[in-house]
């Protein structure tokens, strides 16, 4: 097999007219490649968040905007609205953001308080993830222009399978995490380039049958975003 490696490299070198080993020349060439596209956004904070919300909506995500003091209430209301009882929380997700598991401080006026149980990610196996009603995570960044959420699967963001198997994903995004453009998000990711990274843009979807968008194929069918700040 090492024979193949050498043979392929030899064919490449003969095709490009010699080896490209001169690192300095290559780097110099790379540095002047045209990159005239838009890097930085131009919107103010309000317009940026409005765009983020609008585009999440267009991908069928539910969005709730709240402030730091009322996150737990907002999360409780979402869980109650969808009758989620068995909920798994990503390891490292801030506990103070979770509603009281027994008597939710529900925002659903007058509705009967349903009890829901939280479990920690580390205590849940694949079958638990497959069967639970939903999961809760934070995120690394949000991108307004594309309506995307970026995870680097650090503390609070869950392992990759965690945000994949359950039917509902509730994700908490802080307003200062939301950038406008994709290059701005990539700048923030520069220090995390070798971490596992997942961009999520709406719930999983397909248009393979007659080009009709169907939500929820193999990943979560529902994405709830709680925007804080």
């Amino acid at each position: 097999m090492s024979g193949t490696r050498e043979a392929v490299l030899k064919r490449i070198r003969s095709a490009i007219g010699g080896s490209s080993a001169d690192a300095a020349a290559r780097e110099a060439e790379r540095e002047v490649l045209p990159r005239e596209y838009r890097r930085a956004g131009s919107l103010d904070a309000d317009a940026r968040l409005a765009m983020f919300i609008e585009r999440l909506h267009e991908y069928d995500a539910n969005v709730v905007r709240t402030d730091a003091a009322r996150v737990a209430v907002a999360i409780g209301a979402i869980l109650q609205e969808h009758g989620q009882r068995s909920v798994i929380v990503a390891d490292g997700f801030p506990v103070e953001m979770l509603p009281d598991p027994i008597t939710p401080k529900s925002g659903a006026a007058g509705g009967p308080a349903e009890s829901f149980a939280f479990r920690r990610e580390e205590k849940a196996n694949v079958e638990d993830l497959d069967r639970c009603d939903g999961i809760i995570t934070s995120c690394f960044a949000g991108i307004a222009f594309t309506g995307s959420i970026v995870l680097t699967h650090g503390p609070g963001e869950g392992a990759r399978r965690f945000t994949l198997l359950p039917d509902r994903h509730l994700c908490v995004v802080r307003t200062e995490q939301v950038v406008e453009t994709v290059p701005e998000a990539m700048d923030r990711l520069a220090g995390f380039a070798t971490a596992p990274i997942t961009f999520i843009s709406g719930p999983s979807a397909t248009a393979d049958i007659e080009m009709m968008r169907v939500r929820g194929v193999h990943g979560p069918r529902f994405l709830d975003v709680v925007l804080v700040g």
Binding site: R55, Y59, I143, F145, T146, G147, S148, H153, A159, R160, R161, A193, T194, A195, P196, I197, T198, F199, I200, S201, G202, P203, S204, A205, A207, G219
Partner: peptide
């Protein structure tokens, strides 16, 4: 490809990651 601003999932990962994948 699909006329979307971003497709639902992009995965970027590097080699093997402990306890994940």
């Amino acid at each position: 490809a699909t006329g979307e601003r971003m497709n639902p999932y992009n995965s970027i990962w590097t080699g093997t990651h402990e306890d994940d994948g």
